[in-house]
Nucleic acid binder design. Structure first.
Lengths: 244, 244
DNA sequence: GAGTGGTCTAGACCACACG
DNA sequence: GTGTGGTCTAGACCACTCA
């Protein structure tokens, strides 16, 4: 029963499900329904907004997906505790990031070959110990300043032609995105000193604090690659945001 | 037309929308529909699975929310480029994290008072320069090993009774979660040397690489708090996962 | 049993993009 | 115009929880 005119009056939240969502979000932000509190049932919202239950259900389902409410069948909908603050961290391709800043990206390739895998590496990549894996060691520069040392091992089964690329023109990340079906990624971030080799390649002091990201990516059943990304401290900042 | 018996045979994906979703996810993982490829339309999936359009629509909408497909009205559904690999990074409350490992958490409170805010800090917290803000400086130990130095400023308007807490018993994070309606968080992560004071408090060498997280949280319109969390390198590892 | 969420349907109207 | 996704409805059946 919403006339087109009334839509024109409030274009910000034309869709009924969005209106319901916005109303609930605003209430949560305002501190009505403190964490754990029982929120209105679907039936109540149906009556309040004069929409169908499916519409209300969609609003609540999306709030649940966003982690703002918790729902239990047979019990009700509750304001989420908000405890585990999960943030979205975007790891962009370095080339895009540098060019995005209007600077020039240059890559220096130090290693690009197949090597027999040691036991630990073979286990991590899920290949037989001693079998050949691809290895690249590349230093990325932003306007002549070393920004990242990228030491990467690739499972040949996932990207057989990996080594044929010219890594001064395309980054390993880009290659792997294009040739494999990424399924899962796992990473850890820590601060540490670079290895002697890394310090030399990055042209920093051996004691320079570095941000070290170890990242493993997988298809559904196999490991694609494991990479160690070393950034000189102060030259790199990971940034993230979280908004409900 | 799915009989109850056929459900019993495959309990893993009883719900039709989940079956459609699973089918599409599997196809994406298998490399059918490479990034950018046009995927089946809603009408085609309706015919293929013998379900209603709303059901198919829900499956596709959820895949879109998960970043696996991109949809454009009037055009179609496409396999997502997968380019911006966003990962979910969970910053847990330190107390829970330590206890979760079966260790003991102890907090040493060095500063707990109101202070006049300098210009820069006042601007970040959105208060008048020189007005009082709450300041806590706390070192967190895991079994007598310093794990984090937490230097935090709090907007008094958001948590007026902040200073009344016993921070050896409850962490600032917990207090703020309970007393404010968190709305948005923004953080940056980098590797650097600790300040002289931080090194002393953490009992590490001045040159020890540290993982430094600067985190600001906001309600909808005001800044709640800004915190600088310093972790001695090697004693802390941020971990994250990304799975479609 | 009453109330809750979980899900599905069959049809509908709309906005949009493209040839 | 045709095909696409975006959305809504009115009703339905089910599973679950709690008193």
């Amino acid at each position: 029963m919403v006339s087109p005119e009334s839509r024109a009056v409030e274009p910000a939240a034309a869709a009924p499900y969005a209106r319901v969502k916005r109303h609930l979000k605003a209430g949560l932000a305002a501190g009505r329904w403190p964490p754990g509190a029982l929120m209105p049932s679907e039936a109540e919202l149906v009556a309040e907004f004069g929409v169908s239950r499916m519409t209300v259900n969609r609003a609540l389902r999306e709030l649940q997906a966003e982690g703002l409410v918790a729902r239990t069948q047979g019990v009700g909908t509750f304001a989420a505790p908000l405890h585990p603050v999960s943030s979205t961290l975007t790891i962009r391709d370095l080339h895009e990031e540098i060019e995005g800043r209007g600077h020039r990206h240059r890559a220096q390739v130090h290693v690009q070959r197949a090597e027999p895998a040691g036991a630990a590496l073979a286990a991590q990549l899920g290949v037989a110990a001693g079998s050949a894996v691809f290895h690249t060691l590349i230093v990325h520069f932003e306007d002549e300043l070393a920004l990242q040392c990228e030491d990467r091992y690739v499972n040949p089964a996932c990207s057989p032609r990996y080594l044929e690329n010219d890594f001064t023109r395309i980054t390993p990340t880009q290659v792997l995105f294009r040739t494999t079906a990424l399924w899962r990624a796992q990473y850890s971030i820590q601060a540490a000193r670079p290895t002697a080799q890394e310090a030399r390649l990055l042209r920093v002091a051996a004691a320079e604090p570095c941000l070290i990201i170890v990242r493993r990516t997988f298809t559904r059943d196999a490991a694609i690659t494991i990479g160690r990304l070393v950034h000189p401290g102060g030259r790199y900042l990971l940034e993230g945001q979280f908004a409900p």
